[in-house]
Amino acid sequence: MDNQEFLEMQKIACKVRIWTIEGVFNAKSGHPGGSLSAADMITYLYFKEMNVDPANPQNPDRDRFVLSKGHCCPALYAALALKGYFSTDEIKVLRHIGAMLQGHPNMKDTPGVDMSSGSLGQGVSAACGMALAGKLDNKDYRVYTMLGDGECEEGQVWEAAMFASHMKLDNLCMIVDFNGLQIDGSVNDVAGLEPIDKKFEGFGFEVIKIDGNNFDEIEAAFEKAKTVKGKPTVIIAKTIKGKGVSYMENQVGWHGKAPNADEYKLALEELNAQLKVLEG
C-alpha cells in the first residue's frame, strides 16, 4: 500500500469502529471489545484483500469470509454497510425485532454474509468446506475465516485444523484475533492456549504472527499467505481488545456489554477525533 492507501484504510477502519459503537449502543447489547480488536483486519479484508462485489454478493467466483467468532459481527456489519452491501440505517436497528441484522451473522437474510455463525468453532469448519469446494471446482477464489483466541478452546477448531492441513487447503487463510481476553478473564488464565503458534505448526500450518492493529503487518501477512502452497495459513494477530475507545481497551468487561448514553458519547468523541486527525 502507498501512503494514500494506508491512510484511506485507517479512515475506513475508524468508520468501522464508529458504526460498531452505533450498532451496539442502539442494540443496547452486543460485543464491542472483540469487534474493535478485529476492525482493522476486517477493514483490510473487505477494502483491499478480497475479491468481492456488493452488487453481486452471490458471485460463485468471489472470495469468502466466515466470521467464525460470529459475536463480533458489529464490525462485519459496519464493513459490509460501508462497502455498500446495505444501508448503514440497518445498523441503527441491529438486534431489534424484525431487523435484518441479527445478533450473530445470518447468511439467509444478510447480503455479504457468507456463512451463518456464532456457535464457536463451527465457522472454521464451514470455511474448510468452502475451500474444498474451490479446489474441487478448480476455482481460484480464497477463503478467509476469523477466529477468536478463546474460540480456539473449542475442539472443533482443531478437528478443522487437522482437516485443512490433511486436505492441503492452501486457499484457506485462518486469522486468530488474539486479543488475549475472553468472557471469564485472560485467555491464558482461563484455558492456557499458548503456545498457539506451535500448536498450529504442529497441525501443519504456515504460521504468521503479526500485530493485528497495524496495516503494514496486516498487508504483509495476507500477501505472504497467498504465496503459500500445499498447506493452509494461519495469521495469529496480536490485537488490543476494545481498540480505539480508551476506556474499553484491554478491559475484559467490554467483551459483551453496550455502552450507556454517556459512554456512547465519549466513544464517538474519541473515534471522531481520531477520524478528524486522519482526514487532516
Binding site: 456463512m115 468452502m130 482437516f163
Partner: peptide, 18 residues
Amino acid sequence: GIAEGNMIGVAAGLAACG
C-alpha cells in the same frame, strides 16, 4: 476422520458453494 462435528461444518461449507 473421526471428527463428526467438523464433518457437518465442512458439509455446510460445501453446500454454501453449490
